[in-house]
């Protein structure tokens, strides 16, 4: 038995090294076991979230919880949209505005920035590029205090602008990184041909490079949108008034301000997750192409 496992382990190692698979049934079994385990760990919380949001209160707070819902109700959802107590719709709208604006800003700045990194030579190009990656490694909690001071000095506390700025800055490294990798794979002759055809550099970027880069632009937009949509720390520090709160803060406040609202909290959480999932499913085809950039035919 130990011999079989060792053989399997060394075979797996060989697959990692050579990329060549020649599976035994045991290997396949291991693969599917690992797959199922990963799926359970990843999807179970979502399952609980969905089931809880659909269960009536007595089932949620029962001393004998069941994994399968016995009765299904949409009352938690109607409360979210119907009652005055929970400002879910306004949280949702706030998040949508903040995430869309941030992702769009990030994309425009990212396209121009990544283009200059890959196509222009200027002193410090490599230094700035590495700097971008390093900045991405910093966790937001380490910069929150100085950032708050900056925002306070600019008089932007409790404004959406504070989020636009900070989210754009924090999503930019990823956007830049994705875009410059893609731009590097684009043949520069196309842009040169456009310049010979009489187009300025800006026209070349927006009429030639951008249409060619659609897949990666979609992917970058989605990542920036997701980061902004889910962001909690900056929003919790910069925002004060109820009317401006984004979903993560809003849901947290729901839980803090009211007792026994798990059904509503889960319903809100589910609705928060939904747009990202829908966007991902819809744009997935572009994403994969954008993320596996490099194999572009010339």
């Amino acid at each position: 038995m130990i011999g079989t496992i060792v053989a399997q382990a060394s075979a797996s190692l060989r697959v990692l090294k050579t990329g060549y698979r020649n599976d035994s049934w045991l290997g396949r079994l291991g693969f599917y076991a690992a797959l199922v385990l990963t799926m359970v760990v990843a999807l179970f919380p979502f399952y609980v979230m969905l089931v809880t949001s659909l269960s009536p209160d007595d089932a949620i707070y029962s001393s004998d919880p069941s994994l399968l819902p016995e009765a299904v109700t949409l009352s938690h959802y109607t409360v979210l949209f119907g009652s005055e107590t929970f400002a879910f719709t306004s949280y949702f709208l706030n998040s949508a505005i903040v995430a869309s604006v941030t992702a769009s800003f990030s994309l425009v700045v990212g396209v121009i920035g990544a283009y200059s990194f890959t196509r222009l030579t200027f002193p410090g190009n490599g230094f700035v590029r590495r700097g971008v990656v390093v900045v991405y490694m910093l966790s937001s909690i380490t910069v929150i205090v100085p950032l708050f001071q900056v925002i306070a000095t600019l008089g932007l506390v409790d404004t959406r602008l504070s989020l636009f700025i900070t989210y754009t800055v924090s999503t930019l490294p990823l956007t830049l990184y994705m875009l410059w990798n893609y731009f590097e794979s684009l043949p520069v002759e196309i842009e040169e041909a456009a310049m010979l055809d009489g187009y300025s550099r800006l026209e070349t970027i927006f009429q030639i490079v951008v249409p060619l880069s659609l897949p990666v632009l979609v992917a970058a937009f989605l990542f920036a949108f997701k980061i902004a949509w889910n962001e909690y720390i900056f929003a919790s520090v910069f925002l004060k008034s109820q009317a401006k709160l984004t979903l993560p803060i809003g849901i947290e406040q729901m839980n803090a301000n009211f007792q026994n609202v798990w059904g509503q909290v889960m319903a809100a959480s589910f609705l928060t997750t939904l747009p990202i999932i829908i966007m991902f499913l819809y744009l997935e085809q572009y994403m994969v192409e954008g993320l596996t950039a490099g194999g572009v035919e010339g």
Partner: peptide
């Protein structure tokens, strides 16, 4: 480049793929 009255053909064609 566009003010020189020149045209150029590239090795890898450099066509606008879109």
């Amino acid at each position: 480049p566009s003010d020189r009255s020149i045209a150029m053909v590239f090795q890898d064609y450099g066509l606008y793929r879109t």
